[in-house]
Design a protein around this nucleic acid. Sequence first.
DNA 1: TATACACCTTGACGTAACGTAAAGGTAAAG
DNA 2: CTTTACCTTTACGTTACGTCAAGGTGTATA
Lengths: 254, 254
Amino acid sequence: MEYTITKFAKLAGVSSRTLRYYDEIGILKPARINSSGYRIYGPEQVNQLQQILFYRELGMELEKIRNIITSPTFDPAEALSEHRTKLLAKRTKLNKMIASVDQSLAAAEGRITMSDNEKFEAFKQKLVDDNEEKFGEEAREKYGDETVDKSNQKVLGMSEEKYAEVNRIEMEMKEALSKGMAIGDPASEPAQKAADLHRKWLTYFWDKYTKEAHAGVAQMYVDDERFTAYYDHQQPGTAEFLRDAVHIYTGMNS
Amino acid sequence: MEYTITKFAKLAGVSSRTLRYYDEIGILKPARINSSGYRIYGPEQVNQLQQILFYRELGMELEKIRNIITSPTFDPAEALSEHRTKLLAKRTKLNKMIASVDQSLAAAEGRITMSDNEKFEAFKQKLVDDNEEKFGEEAREKYGDETVDKSNQKVLGMSEEKYAEVNRIEMEMKEALSKGMAIGDPASEPAQKAADLHRKWLTYFWDKYTKEAHAGVAQMYVDDERFTAYYDHQQPGTAEFLRDAVHIYTGMNS
DNA sequence: TATACACCTTGACGTAACGTAAAGGTAAAG
DNA sequence: CTTTACCTTTACGTTACGTCAAGGTGTATA
C-alpha cells in the first residue's frame, strides 16, 4: 500500500501541492523518498492525513494542528475547547456584520427616510444598537438568528407614523405604570394595563410574540443596569415593578 | 483643514501604513502632494475614508469597496445584498464547525463511549447530522444558536442506557400511534398518548420544551419529505396523523 | 548655526495555505 | 527511441496591512 504523491492526493481528496506544502512545513512527511527523489506515502500517512483534515475542517490553523498531533504533552480537548471559543467569537462578529448590512440595506432601499427627523434616526439607531451590542449575543442565543435579524429589519423599516404610534404607546404605558406604582400592586388594573401596552409596544419590534420572551425581557430590565436606569429615570423601582406586572400578565410568576 | 498622513490617520483611527496602502491600490488618493513629496489630505478624503471604513466594517474586500465607491454605475444596494448572502453562508459554515467541535469534544472528554456498540455510534452520528445538515440552518434560525448547540451536546453526551430508553419510548410511541391510526382519530386516547410519548422523546434532545416548538417539529415531519418518509415507512399517512395528534396535544390546532 | 528629534518618503520582507506556472529529471508505454 | 505522464524544486501571486530599513525634511533648541 504505497503511493506516489498524486495517487495519495486523490485518495485523500487533496491536491499534490497541499501534500508538498505539508511536507515543507513538517506537518506530514512521506514514509520515505525513493532513489529518484519521489515522495512515497504509506498507510501510516493515510491516518495522519485524516487527522489533519479533520482538524482543518474545523477551521483550525495548521500550526495548531501540528501542536496537537505531534506534541505528546498537548491536550487535544483543551485545544478544541479554545478553538471553540474562537469560533463563537467569530460567529458573534458575523452576526454584528449581518445586522449592519441589514441596516444599511434598509437605508439604501429607502425604507427609512434619510433624516429630516433627527430624533427619529437616533431612535432607530439606538434600538438597533441596543439589539446588537447590548444584548444581541444573548438574544441570538435565546431566540435565534432569524428572530433578531427580523427585529432589526422591522425597526429599520419603520415609518415615521409608526414611530409616532410606538412613542404614544410607550407614553401610555408609562402613565399606566406610574398609576400602578401609586397603588403599589403589580396585579392592579393600571399595572396590568401597562403590561398589556408593553406587549403591544414589543410587537412593533418583534416578529412573533411569546409569553416566555416577554417575561424574559421584563426580567432583563431588572438585570441589566442600562435598562434599569432607563426605566427608573422618573421613579426608582419602576423596572422592577414593570417586571412584576409583566410576570403576572404572562402568568410566568409561579 | 489639511492634514499630513499621521494626523489624518489619527483623525480616522487607522494607521498611516493603511493610508499609504490605500493610496497604492488607488482606493484613496491624497488631495495633493506637497513640494517635499508629503501626502496632504483634505476634507473630501475624510468623507471618502469614512465610506471605505464603513464597508470595511462589514467585512467587505477592498476591491469590492473600490467598485462601489468609484464606479458610478455600480449599485451599492446590490453589492450589499450580495455581500449579505456571503455573510450568511459564512455563518452557516461556522455553525457547522461549532457543532463538529462540540461533537469531538464530547468524544475527547469520554462522555460518549468510543464504539463497542456500532449501532449506538451510528445513531448518534445520524442524530447530530440530522440536526445540522438537514434542518440545522432552519432550526438555528427559529430556535437559536444555543438551543441547537445544546441539543447536539445532549445527544453526544448520552449514555447507552439513555439510548435504550430513547429507543423504548420511540417504540411505545409508534405502537400508540398505530393504535390511534386504527381508530382514525388524532384526538383519541392512543393518539394523544403517542403525542405525549413524542414529547417525552423530544426532551431527550431538547434543552427546554415549548408547545410551540413541539408543534413546529410535528409540522416539519409533514413538510420535510425525509421525515415524512421515515414516519410513513410502516404506514402511509403516519407523519400527518402524528402532526394532527401533536397539534391537538399542544393546543395549537385552533 | 549646528544638532537633535519628530515626521515624511519609498522599498521590501513577512503573514496562511496553498494555486499556478516554469524548468528540468524520471518512468512507463508505444 | 520518442512520446506522454508524472515527479522534482523554485518562485511568484493571493489579502491587508505590520514592521523594519535607509534616507530626506521641518522645526525647536543649545
